[in-house]
């Protein structure tokens, strides 16, 4: 059992038993291995948020099971409570959850709820602040005095401080400018390298995901419509577009080049990759 999270036949429906019964997610089989980075993509309302709210027991499945490290989290109250600390969930715009007087105390909120010792809490806060790039001198400030980007880092540190085995980021870069976006992706990448923790990123940006994810799940209409490696998923441009998703521009450029009879690979997702391939091709042409 090397799965950190496993969902088996998970369904969730609203207004169950009435004639207005709606499935938010239906028959989901999903798994995350230790240290894996999973991407979940899908348009708004595809069931992404409902699905991830099951992973730490915020929602109870109507049918099916959620296993964290092989144990059903709904087994008993304690298991459920502990699942919150094993699976960290960082919501969209997490800066709106900040509430404490100082950044330090806000980051310490999770560890405190874990009933850790003062020393352990302090260590964890400092460590998480370091992972999330929260400046030391900010720790004693009020979180409300920070800039937007700094607030978000502080909030992310609050989830990291619980040192969960897997962290779920829901649209971590929402509302950030290009530089903020790049910094945040680097932050997640570094965190993963340093801790070996598994990560799930929920996003509708296919560009960021291409360079990050080991595996991707595509959700549509509450079901898993596609899954596989980046190559396997991104190669089906038509299908993705039909689900309201866009493949990266660079991938589209390469698809059109192929359509025009030019021999280039289809699995190109970054400008760096593309440049290299085309430069080689041009070198061959001129020689």
């Amino acid at each position: 059992m090397s799965y950190v999270i496993e969902a088996k036949g998970l369904s969730h429906c609203y207004s169950k038993g009435t004639n207005q019964q709606v499935y938010a997610v239906k028959d989901i089989d999903f798994s995350v291995e230790k240290g894996e980075l999973i991407g979940i993509i899908g348009h708004t309302g595809s069931g992404k948020s409902t699905l991830i709210s099951h992973f730490n027991g915020l929602l109870k499945p109507s049918s099916g099971q959620i296993l964290v490290n092989g144990t059903d989290i709904w087994k008993d109250k304690e298991t459920l409570h502990n699942s919150r600390f094993q699976v960290g969930l960082c919501f969209q715009y997490p800066e709106y959850q900040l509430f404490e007087e100082t950044v330090f105390r806000d980051i310490a909120f999770g560890p405190k709820n874990m009933k850790l010792s003062e020393n352990e809490i302090k260590e964890r806060v400092l460590r998480a602040a370091d992972y999330a790039g929260v400046k030391k001198e900010h720790l004693d400030k009020s979180p409300f005095d920070l800039s937007g980007g700094e607030k978000r880092r502080a909030a992310i540190a609050g989830v990291m401080a619980m040192e969960p085995e897997v962290i779920i980021f829901d649209e971590p870069a929402a509302g950030l400018d290009p530089k903020g976006r790049k910094d945040l992706i680097k932050l997640i990448r570094d965190y993963r390298e340093r801790t070996g923790s598994a990560i799930i990123i929920v996003s509708h940006s296919m560009e960021d995901m291409a360079s990050l994810a080991d595996r991707i799940y595509v959700m549509n209409g509450g079901e898993i419509a596609m899954q596989g490696t980046v190559d396997e998923v991104y190669s089906q441009g038509e299908k993705l577009r039909s689900m309201g998703l866009n493949v990266p521009e660079i991938t589209e450029i390469f698809a059109s080049l192929r359509a025009k009879g030019i021999d280039v690979p289809a699995n190109v997702y970054t400008v760096e990759q593309g440049t290299e391939i085309l430069k080689k091709l041009m070198g061959r042409c001129s020689s």
């Binding site: 409570h81 919501f91 909120f109």
Partner: peptide, 11 residues
Amino acid sequence: RIMNAQKARGA
């Protein structure tokens, strides 16, 4: 949303 976020931190 806020309740879920705080519950996710073990509140």
